[in-house]
Design a protein around this nucleic acid. Structure first.
Lengths: 228, 228
DNA sequence: GTGGCTGAGTGGATGAGCCACTGAACCAGT
DNA sequence: ACTGGTTCAGTGGCTCATCCACTCAGCCAC
């Protein structure tokens, strides 16, 4: 089982605000109504509204100035990758673009991991890969797959690749139930991924890059078949 | 001039909490003291503390469960790239790793931009590049340089590259005053960057990738000289 | 054992109130 | 006319006191 979190008012409100913004109800650059009025409109306290504002501001969607107001940032132009989860949830058209980037970055990571992975890191990769076909259910297989990629990112020795990998995963893990195609058959998933780990373990950078590219292309194709 | 934002209590508190966490005062996985006690300890209201909590939770540093408590997430393992600005500010050791990734991703972007940039996008690139040597002061030159890179990301036709570029810039723009070495001479900055734009405009993907790699290597080297 | 109850401790949310800031309109002095 | 100061309405920042909702461990009846 898995403990699923309750949905607080702030959560709901944040979602609603985000939707309203991304739908264009409050266009980029425009000011939101004053907090008092907006809180009244949504039937919540100003305090609660401010909590939701705080999150959206942290995410880069809003920008508040004391004495002036709160306005919608031009997120498409200036926003960071941490907006992806909400953008993907709001419009699945982003998924394809996320995957393309994932492919490019994944290839870089495999290359670096092959060049610089330490012995224990390679051993961990092997263990995680071996655990994959033992997972039960497509969801578990997918998560086991994710763990292998996290380990690959760690093996680059560059912590930023780890964070970047997490960001890209965060972007589509919330909608992962729609993308389980590649993971319904644990054996097949294992076969696709194995060459990447093999090349990295062997320390062959060029082959690792190519294997990662192939793996990501295949996985992406199978995932998107499920969407179409 | 530039309007610099005031520092609110929540800002200060957030900074303090972040520092305490990143310094290991509250290790990953551990629970923070209860809100009432912590608020008392910092001399602020629980409401204010919760605002700061909200931001850090959104950033992926904290995780709150109703009725249980707030605990520090294992950000090094599970955090996203949006943590970078705070990590870099806290420990400049991250800068080198950010640059390495920036180099890899920058090369990907240049390659894609060369393949897929539209005519107006190429024109914009040329215009932004031409504006660079006209900027006054290292800071303005650096920001003009950033704008060229944003335009390059847009020219890939993939919005995720734009967000990713912003994320990486956000990581080191807050400390950019320490990294102005490459931008003290506008003419030199222009000369380094020009080959990238030229190759992209010519639609030569391979050359664009190599030019970007060279540019990023050079810029990185000059920047880090200033740090050492 | 098993299942339900209870109470202490925790975060969630409220609403009234006051403070601090911004910007535009106004007004005086030059 | 122009400049500079003052005022004021509107906005967000922050606090406080209070109650609600949830979790967990311990207890107890069955």
């Amino acid at each position: 089982m898995e403990a699923l979190p309750r949905e607080t008012i702030v959560d709901v409100l944040e979602d609603r605000l985000r939707t309203d913004i991304l739908d264009g109800l409050h266009p980029a650059g425009s000011y939101l109504p004053p907090e008092r009025r907006l809180a009244d409109g949504y039937g919540v306290t100003r305090t609660t509204l401010k909590h939701a504002f705080g999150r959206l501001a942290q995410a880069g969607l809003l920008e508040t100035r004391h004495g002036v107001g709160t306005r919608v940032r031009d997120y498409a132009r200036l926003g960071g990758a941490d907006l992806l989860p909400m953008l993907v949830r709001h419009d699945s058209g982003w998924v394809r673009e996320v995957f393309e980037v994932r492919r490019g970055v994944g290839a870089l990571i495999a290359e670096r991991a092959a060049e610089r992975g330490t012995r224990p890191q390679r051993a961990e990769l092997g263990a995680l890969l071996a655990a994959l076909p033992r997972a039960e259910g497509a969801d578990a297989v997918q998560l086991a797959d994710v763990e292998v990629h996290r380990a690959l990112a760690r093996a680059t020795g560059n912590r930023v690749y780890v964070l970047l990998t997490n960001t890209l995963f965060n972007a589509y893990l919330p909608v992962r139930s729609l993308l389980q195609g590649p993971f319904t058959d644990p054996e097949a998933a294992h076969r696709r991924l194995a060459p990447v780990v093999e090349a990295v373990t062997a320390g062959d950078a060029r082959r690792a890059r190519e294997a990662a590219d192939t793996y990501l292309r295949d996985t992406e194709r199978i995932m998107l078949e499920g969407l179409a």
